[in-house]
Design a protein around this nucleic acid. Structure first.
Lengths: 305, 305
DNA sequence: TCGCTGTGATGCCTCGGGAGTATCAGTTCC
DNA sequence: GGAACTGATACTCCCGAGGCATCACAGCGA
């Protein structure tokens, strides 16, 4: 593969040219460049030779740009401005002042820790853009492994090899019912009460660990639940319950701000437990922007139940 | 005035960086740059030091960009493309392949030589943009002297010091009359016939020489014309004649495509003569685009009367 | 386990070329 | 016509980019 770019001049030539074009005066330009005038003259001559076109009209007493020189000046000006910003911008990325981080989350995270973290993070790092996507646990695993994702808030029931994780909270699930349901009259329920109630769950593939633990909890009390629908994101289950399709599990945090036709009931005795972890890829060279996000996310006070 | 730009790196560094970023392999990049690998390593190290941030992660067996490196790569890529085009574009301007020329003209030019010249010119030099403005002779003089104008088609009755001029055509003026006018019945007129006819001329300041020669022509036959209106551009005189305001002088070329209410009559004997010249500033370094325009304009076959 | 191969980094040397000083050559102005 | 400018040229010096040889280290295979 041959080299892609080759230039008959150097940055120096452009800077010198720009300075002469600004002053239209070799000596003054040389002085402002802290350079001897002959050196400047020679560099400009080199540039003209390299471009194959005269850039200045030297009439002993006056220097003027040629049309070619004017075109070059117009192009060089923005170029130098871009180059001028470059070191600062690169440094800013290296120092983690700007950048962007892809973050995935589940509904539980958004209902609990995530808003506080986002608030604190944007205060501390206004230059870092977050790319937030609600995504099921299993998809987060894949994306984290492949590097598509920098970090994720998910349920820790999947394989987390090669990942750092930190448990953020654990919450017992309660039950969401239509307010008109018979069971809605009770203040608290037991799993056994749900034996004949159609359940709205989520596709098993999206979080097999949690799914299986729900079934295990039922098995512990000797029943096999009837699963009516599977929906994702889980917040959509609310709509189905409202339509009278059955009941679903949800943590108290997620069950805030329910429509009046739906009620939340605690579970006594065995109950599925939701755990929320923050996970990110182990790396010897963490991206500065990710490091900044993790620092804030891990420092935020835990929301416990 | 201090220097405006200073860079801690050279173009070379960016090209080398771009090549390493492309290959993610120092040896291959060095080879493609026709460079020894140590030299490349050192230049990259210099760039990293200059920017104050590592750009590559070197893990013995694999080279990867850091986030800062990725940002730099994104910025360097378009920059190098711009730089790559620059020499060609500057050359094109210097060679007169592209550019732009400000050209002024009077109504007579547009009625005669200009359309042909423009057609031939755009065929020959599609890259050169012309900026065409109808402008009175006196204004063209000022603009040519100040450099605001590259060349102009005008009437040569003004001072043309410092200008090159070339006579393009001379035409005797005839008379434009309302078709209902008494004089319109004759096939040809004499100046003397116009003694009592109100005339539509143009502001004297716009072309004092021609204006005075019209008056001189009248003086030769012993009359002082009555000047009713002065209007510019002269083509607008047609509207005034049509409204019955009087008569005006015009060359046969300009008097094409008249509305039916207006007639053109030749003048016998003494008559004002319009001359059209092409003028441009004398310069030891003619703009290539202007030179190209002049070459076409001067080569075009003269329209004689 | 011990080379073998292939990676990028380091040390040392060479030489091209950028920069400085002195000077020239031509304008412009008094 | 000379004084005071301008930018270009001649010569020299020396910094640093680049080459060569080598090092240090990571995989890989026998």
């Amino acid at each position: 593969m041959p080299r892609e770019y080759q230039f008959p001049f150097e940055l120096r030539h452009l800077v010198y040219f720009h300075e002469v074009a600004r002053h239209l005066h070799f000596r003054k330009a040389a002085e402002s460049l802290a350079l001897a005038q002959p050196a400047l003259s020679r560099q400009i001559a080199q540039l003209e030779k390299a471009l194959g076109a005269p850039l200045f009209v030297r009439s002993r007493r006056r220097v003027d740009l040629t049309p070619a020189g004017r075109v070059l000046a117009e192009r060089v000006e923005p170029l130098l401005r871009l180059l001028n910003r470059m070191p600062r911008d690169v440094r800013a990325v290296a120092d983690g002042e700007v950048g962007h981080v892809r973050v995935a989350f589940t509904g539980l995270a958004m209902a609990t820790v995530l808003p506080k973290i986002l608030h604190a993070f944007h205060l501390r790092h206004p230059g870092i853009r977050l790319e937030l996507t609600e995504s099921p646990t299993s998809a987060q695993m894949v994306a984290l492994q492949s590097g598509d994702l920098a970090c994720g808030f998910f349920h820790p029931d999947a394989a987390t090899v090669g990942l750092n994780t930190k448990l953020l909270l654990r919450e017992r699930n309660g039950v969401l019912l239509p307010a008109t349901h018979l069971l809605a009259k009770r203040a608290a329920l037991k799993l056994l009460d749900l034996a004949m109630v159609p359940l709205v769950l989520f596709p098993r593939t999206h979080n097999p660990g949690f799914y299986d633990r729900i079934l295990a909890a039922f098995a512990m009390v000797g029943i096999t639940p009837r699963i009516a629908e599977e929906v994702w994101p889980r917040a959509n289950a609310v709509g189905l319950i409202r339509a009278g399709l059955g009941a679903t599990f949800m943590t108290p945090s997620e069950a805030q701000h329910l429509p009046p036709e739906i009620v939340f009931r605690r579970l006594r005795g065995p109950a599925p437990e939701s755990r929320l972890v923050l996970g990110w890829r182990q790396s010897p060279n963490p991206e500065p922007a990710l490091a900044a996000f993790l620092a804030v996310a891990l420092a935020s006070p835990r929301t416990r139940d």
